[in-house]
Simulated assay, not measured.
Amino acid sequence: MQVLTRESLPLGGFAGLTEHRLVTDSRVFAGRKAPDTFEGIGNFVYLADAQFNPMGETHMHPHKEIDVITIMMDGRISHEGSLEHGQSLVAGEAQVQRAGGEGFEHNEVNPDMTKNRLLQLWVLPDEFGEPAGFKHYTVQQGVTRIYGGNKTQTEVFYSSTIIDIVRLRAGEIFTSNNDVLVYVSKGDAILTDGGAYYDASEGSLVRSENIRIEASNDTEVVVVTVAAP
């Protein structure tokens, strides 16, 4: 088990937000990979835990051939751009924007006078040239799959890389026998992998091959894994 904590990394950011970058994969960040950050898993290449300043925004910018996933933790953002312009995102919701071959432009705006908090993840596509698209999710108790799966699962974008948001109450357990990256986005949990043990709090990123997660209180984790071939 490998562990990286949000607080061990420098605070960066751009435009109207500040962020801790925990995953900066060399396939995307070659030559400018942030020190001490993890590589990704599967086609997952980027993870940032971010806060928008009051009334802050990213400003309009493009993406192409990458899938951009936003998980709202606190507050809200207003979404502007070529996909689902005007869609809002509040705490407990997630959006996935597939840039595909045609690409998209977007701007995320904090409409409030207080800071918010969100996670942003990037995944490279399994297939290039896909049409751009947008999906919106409300996170449920238990496991909410927001990304990945086979082409018959129309509720999520196809990918061999899978992203689940897992909400656990105190004492509840989640296990995975696959290679995983787990990010504790809220709460506290006891993570075990064979003989290894880690008492994880919010902001802990763990790489494991066989993990057991037991929630110490109301906990939310993001689990990234790769589908079996």
Rank of each mutant, 00 (worst) to 15 (best):
S8T: 13
P10W: 05
L11C: 07
G13E: 06
A15Y: 07
E19Y: 01
D25L: 10
S26G: 00
R27K: 11
V28N: 01
A34W: 00
A34Y: 01
P35I: 07
F38H: 01
E39M: 03
G40T: 03
G42S: 06
Y46M: 10
L47M: 04
A48I: 07
D49P: 05
D49K: 07
G56Y: 13
E57N: 12
T58Y: 02
M60A: 12
I69L: 14
I69N: 04
D74N: 14
D74H: 15
I77P: 04
I77K: 08
G81M: 09
Q87P: 00
S88C: 07
S88L: 00
G92S: 12
E93I: 00
E93A: 03
Q97R: 15
G101C: 05
G103T: 07
F104W: 02
N110A: 12
P111K: 04
K115A: 15
N116T: 06
L119S: 06
Q120M: 14
V123L: 03
G133Y: 07
K135V: 07
H136L: 10
T138R: 15
Q140V: 14
Q141T: 14
V143W: 04
T144Q: 13
Y147T: 04
Y147K: 07
G148N: 10
G149F: 02
N150D: 15
V156N: 09
F157W: 01
Y158K: 11
S160G: 09
I163P: 01
R167P: 03
A170P: 02
A170S: 14
N178C: 11
D179M: 13
V182P: 02
S185E: 04
G187P: 07
D188F: 13
D188A: 15
A189R: 10
I190Y: 00
L191H: 04
D193G: 03
G203Q: 06
S204P: 00
V206D: 02
V206M: 00
E209S: 14
I213V: 15
I213W: 08
E214H: 07
A215C: 09
D218L: 08
T219I: 13
T219P: 09
V221S: 02
V224F: 01
T225D: 00
V226E: 10
A227E: 12
P229T: 07
